[in-house]
Amino acid sequence: MLAVGMGSTQASAESAPFAAQIASGHLTKAQTAALKAEVDHYLKVTGGRQAALNKIDIPGGEVLVAIPGEAHPRDFAGGNGMAAAVDHCLDPDQAINNGWFCAYPEDVFQGTAVQWYACGTYPMNFVTHNGSWSNNQTRGRQARMYGKSGNLLYTTPGAYSSDAHGNWWSVWKVKPC
Rank of each mutant, 00 (worst) to 15 (best):
L2A: 13
T9H: 15
S12N: 13
A19V: 06
A19E: 12
A20P: 07
A20I: 12
I22H: 02
S24M: 11
H26V: 10
T28H: 10
A33Y: 08
K36Y: 04
E38H: 00
E38V: 01
H41G: 10
Y42M: 08
V45Y: 07
T46W: 09
G48N: 04
R49I: 12
R49T: 15
A51F: 06
A52K: 07
L53G: 08
K55W: 02
E62Q: 12
V63D: 00
A66W: 04
P68N: 09
E70L: 02
P73A: 03
F76G: 06
G79D: 06
A83T: 00
V86C: 00
H88D: 04
H88K: 15
D91T: 07
A95S: 14
I96Q: 11
I96F: 01
G99V: 09
P105V: 08
E106R: 09
D107S: 10
Q110I: 01
G111F: 06
G111H: 07
G111S: 06
T112Q: 06
T112G: 03
A113Y: 03
A113K: 09
Q115P: 03
Q115G: 11
Q115T: 13
W116L: 12
C119E: 14
G120Y: 07
V127S: 05
V127W: 12
V127T: 11
V127E: 09
S132M: 03
S134H: 13
N135E: 03
R139D: 13
R139F: 12
R139L: 10
R139I: 07
Q142Y: 01
Q142L: 00
R144W: 01
R144I: 03
M145W: 11
M145R: 06
Y146A: 05
Y146L: 13
Y146K: 06
G147Q: 02
G147L: 00
S149H: 11
S149V: 08
N151V: 07
T156Y: 02
D163W: 00
A164L: 04
H165V: 02
G166D: 10
N167M: 00
W172V: 00
K173H: 12
K173A: 09
P176L: 09
C177P: 04
